[in-house]
Each structure stands twice: as C-alpha cells, then as structure tokens.
Design a protein around this nucleic acid. Structure first.
Lengths: 205, 205
DNA sequence: CTTGGAACGGAAAACTTCGTTCCGCTATAG
DNA sequence: CTATAGCGGAACGAAGTTTTCCGTTCCAAG
C-alpha cells in the first residue's frame, strides 16, 4: 500500500497525534496550530472532521478509551493489592487523559457514546478503588471521587518539556501514594526536585 | 464622608475585589466581566487603571504582598515547628495567591517593584522551609521548589463555589501534609469528600 | 498518455472577542 | 446655579479564529 491513499492514511494518524499534543498543552489552541504541528494544511483537517468540535469529541473519546484500557489492565492484575493500585495510578498519570477529558469537557455537546464511555470509566474506577479499600491497603477515608480530583491535580503540573513534566508528576504521585498507603511506608521520591531556574522561567513572557 | 467622593472610594475597593475574584477564577477573563461583577461601568475601571495590564500588575503585587504577610507571620510563630509549618501552608492555600501570581505571570511586563516582591517572597519561603527541615519535622527530600509546585497543585483544585473549593483544597492539603510530615502521623482528612454529582456537573456546558 | 477526481495547501471570507475610546448624563461641591 | 468629577455603556478598531473556497498535485483507471 502506497501512493496517495497511503499518505492519507498516514495523515489520519499524524493529525490525531498532533491534535492530542496541541490540545493537551493548551485546550484553547486554534485549529491552525494543530495543522502546523501535523505538517499538513488546514483542509486536511476539515476533510476528516466537520468542525473543531468534532475533532475535540474524537480526542475526548480516545482519551476516555485509553483511561478504560489502563483501568481494565489494572483490574486484571491479581498480584499484590497495593502494587496493583499504585500501578493503576501511575498508568493513569502517564496516560494523561485528565488533561484532555476534563479540560475539554464543557466545551462541546457530549454525545451518547461519550456519555457511555464516561460511565464505563467511572465504573471501573469505582471497582479499583473498592478493591484496594477491601484489601486494606488504601487509606479508607479517601473516596473514588477524591482519587479523580487527585488525578486532576497531577495533571495540573506543567513545567518544562513533556518529559520533565511527566517526571515531576510521578514525583508528586509518589508523595501522594505515601499519604494514601495503609499501613504507612515511606518510599523515596523519584526524579530530581524542580530547580529554581525552572520555576522562574515562567515569569518571562 | 458621603456623596460622590464616598461612592468613588467605595468603588476603588469594589473593583479590586471583583477583579481579584474574576481573574482568580479565569485569568483570561475580559475586562467587561470585572466591571459587571463590580456592578460598575467600564469607564469606572479605566478611570483608575490606564490599561488592563496595569490592573493585572496591581493584582499580582497585592497577591505577592499577601503571600509575604502570611509568610512573615509564619516565621514569627516560635511554637511547635510542625504546626508553624503546617499553619504556613494552610495560610498560603487560603490566601490563594498562586492562582493570581503564577497564572498571571508571563501575561505582562514585570516591574522592578514586582520583581523585588517576588524575591522577598521567595526568600521567606526558603527560610520557612529550611527551618522546618532543620527542626526535623519535614520530609528532607522535599525542596522549597517542590513546596511551590505543591501550592500550585492545591490551587488547581476548583469545584463548586468558592467555599466548597476552599474546603476541598484543605482536604487535599491535609493529605499532603500527612505525606510531608516526619515522623509520620496520619491525621483525619477535613471536609466531606467530593460527591459524584459535583464531579459530573462539569460535563454539562 | 489522458483524465477524473480524491487529497491537499493555504489565502481569504466571515465571524467573534476584546481592549479602549468617546459621548452624554448625573449628582455633588463650591 | 453651574462647573465638573465620575460614571454607564454603546461604538470602534485591532486581533484572532473558524470555516470556506479555489487552484494545484498526484494517483489510478481507461
């Protein structure tokens, strides 16, 4: 398979990848930024999606499905209960679906399909949470909804490039897991702490 | 004191309060939103500030000064080292200066006065952190810069009205303090956990 | 070869949003 | 009574964004 058709199929992926990156970094980014990042013209976008909202919906759904996939894998893990739970949280933080799913929510009309996926994601999160509580490895006064908000807090961390941001998110997730775990067991924090220079870089426009 | 002059003096305060509330909720809000919230016309704003940037600078400086005041009060606290540190963190979260100071940074040309205030704030934060570490009450692998990023994470929590948001921030701050404290001592979480309805409310535009 | 049309690039149209200005009005100070 | 500080909000102009549109390219079928 090659030629024009192949190029088009490649662009499908290219555009989605670019859109995910751009809107994850800035949920209010213009469509032109996506096209530029994908290395295609604007019309290549509009050939595939009827409107910006359409593209946003697609991204949101993809994000939810990734979330669901990570959750299902975590539920399959029948090993150490705490490690299964911690692995779940690390997986969700890596998936970075909060950024897209939450921050884009409210910017478009949700479809039934999207609602169904959200319900499924919520159900899985509840099961994972319940299992960890039942196993006695999770602080019992933290609820499923708490976990959801904590994910958003991890997603709010943004500093430097994508790699550095991920590193820092895991650093604070480790701190959080320390607070969440029962019985307590304080692990070392991963990744280097932020440098002052990293912080102050945000002060210059 | 009454009459026209009094009304103007009252508007001074009204406008600043409205601006703080509006830009805290949405750093990119239009100036018209501030006027509406203050219950005044747009010209009342422009009589006091030459431009939007001017107003933003004023807010940022006020936020930094509040931060400094809270920090100085914490440094004065010569009681239990952990309580002094925890009180400091609770104070900063209540002041909610991260939302204004950080999220507005980079949107305007900083003045020397602003730079000086930022330097002073940073110095105080370092002193407070160092004191807590020296007293052995703070997890030693957490740096001053870590604390700054953790403040931002608390500030990223936004759910329901202002009161509910504050409540939740303190809930997660308590969790965080649990992870930060040495030797470990797990306190109960304050405030009710988020309800599912609170979370899902964000899905409807 | 030729050619129909899918896919594309990118300029321009159409629209939105926002900061700022301006003008007419009101109520007070003098 | 009058000059004017202070104000409300419509009007304006500059950006910025989404969407359309049209000329071009390139593959594949005849």
């Amino acid at each position: 398979m090659s030629g024009r058709k192949a190029q088009a199929a490649r662009n499908d992926e290219l555009i989605l990848k670019a859109a995910r990156a751009v809107f994850t970094a800035d949920p209010g980014a213009p469509i032109a930024a996506v096209a530029e990042r994908a290395g295609v013209g604007i019309s290549a976008l509009y050939r595939r999606y009827a409107s910006k909202e359409d593209l946003l919906r697609k991204l949101c759904l993809d994000g939810l499905e990734l979330y669901i996939a990570v959750s299902e894998k975590a539920l399959d893990d029948q090993g150490d209960p705490w490690e299964a739970f911690a692995g779940y949280m690390r997986g969700i933080v890596d998936a970075d679906s909060s950024s897209l799913t939450i921050k884009l929510a409210g910017t478009f009309q949700p479809t039934p399909e999207l609602g169904a996926a959200a319900a499924r994601a919520s159900e899985l999160a509840t099961r994972i949470h319940a299992r960890a509580v039942a196993a006695g490895v999770l602080r019992p006064d933290v609820t499923t909804a708490d976990i959801a908000l904590l994910f958003e807090q991890m997603a709010s961390v943004k500093l430097g490039d994508e790699e550095r941001t991920g590193q820092l998110r895991h650093r604070y997730l480790a701190l959080l897991l320390d607070a969440l775990r029962r019985p307590a067991s304080h692990a070392a924090l991963p990744g280097p702490a932020p440098e002052d220079a990293e912080l102050s870089a945000r002060w210059v426009p």
